[in-house]
């Protein structure tokens, strides 16, 4: 079966229920699922170790023969070929299907995009009449909730947690991911009424998967011009502040905000680092980036959206 995921034509041995089918004829990325883990005995030299905010190990990355090994420490290994054309899932222990889908769609494929020469930001995005507006920030800052608030207001959805960017005719375009996003239970209840139809994202989180209808007014299928990025900040100072604050960032601050949110598979790959550096420099020259802080109260989300819509006129 062929799917359209982040504008890539992807084949998968297992159904990807959240991802639209593709009209393409040839897969750019082939996804295979194994029953056992052929790499579990490997203890390679990890060049990157990601931890969860509580310090628990999450994902280790290493270069191995023919590609990269991505080890989600508790759950599974993924092998990604050097070319980024092949992805192989191998369970480290019995893993629920929804967890496999989440790791694949939302964690592995964004890194594959980077390996294949593309760029993606850790950001959620929606489409406005002025262009695509994205929200970046650390885990738990409210990226998905804010995007969900705009979806509730009727703005077409673009992506959740991974925004692929592409340069075309010297402009930057935002590439739709797939029509679904992920919310904490309380946010889902506030925004969409907690109707109980939403599926679990993964067995280790209480987040829920919210699907978006594939209609032009709810999900933007085609790449759209990228207009603005809001970098959400949370600190003791912003927590105490009861105001919605939007601040224009300097080019340097904008660049560093982009760097913080960019997906990078191999930080030891100099050509990739140099390519991404140049790309993000061009993004800064074309896209306006703002810092956003707002009180953590669901009832204020419509006001946050309103402030952003007003700011977009500037």
């Amino acid at each position: 079966m062929l799917y359209r995921l982040y504008n890539l034509t992807v084949s998968s041995e297992k159904p990807l229920p959240w991802v639209p089918l593709s009209n393409g004829t040839e897969a750019e990325v082939k996804i295979r699922f194994k029953d056992s883990c052929r790499t579990s005995h490997l203890s390679p030299e990890w060049f990157m170790k990601w931890e969860l905010p509580d310090g628990e190990p999450w994902l280790n990355l290493a270069k191995i023969d023919g590609g990269y090994l991505l080890r989600f420490t508790e759950f599974a290994d993924f092998f990604v070929s050097d070319s980024g054309n092949e992805v192989e899932f191998m369970p480290g222990q019995p893993v629920p299907e929804e967890t496999i889908q989440h790791l694949l769609l939302d964690q592995v494929i964004p890194l594959v995009i980077n390996l294949r020469g593309g760029e993606a930001l850790h950001a959620s995005a929606i489409h406005t009449s002025r262009g695509v507006v994205a929200f970046a920030g650390p885990a738990g800052s409210g990226k998905s909730t804010l995007a969900g608030s705009f979806v509730k207001l009727g703005y077409p959805f673009i992506s959740d947690d991974c925004l692929r960017l592409k340069e075309r005719d010297q402009n930057i375009y935002a590439i739709p991911a797939y029509p679904g996003f992920r919310l904490w239970e309380d946010a889902e209840k506030f925004l969409f009424g907690g109707n109980g139809n939403h599926k679990s994202v993964a067995h280790y989180t209480s987040k829920l998967r919210v699907s978006v209808e594939r209609k032009p007014d709810t999900y933007s299928e085609e790449p759209q011009p990228f207009l603005r990025l809001y970098d959400i900040v949370r600190s003791p100072e912003t927590e105490e502040n009861s105001d919605i604050v939007i601040k224009k960032l300097s080019p340097r601050e904008s660049f560093m905000a982009l760097i913080r949110s960019a997906f990078r598979l191999d930080i030891t790959d100099r050509s990739m680092l140099t390519r991404q550096f140049g790309f993000l420099k061009r993004v800064v020259s074309k896209i306006s980036i703002r810092q956003l802080s707002f009180p953590r109260e669901f009832k204020l989300l419509p006001s946050v959206c309103g402030s952003i819509l007003t700011d977009l006129k500037d």
């Binding site: 300097s250 080019p251 340097r252 904008s254 560093m256 100099r270 140099t274 550096f277 420099k281």
Partner: peptide, 18 residues
Amino acid sequence: QVSADLSGEAAILNLKSG
């Protein structure tokens, strides 16, 4: 390293350490 002039400010990337 590579560096970028950002309208009078700058960003630098250390290619050895990332």
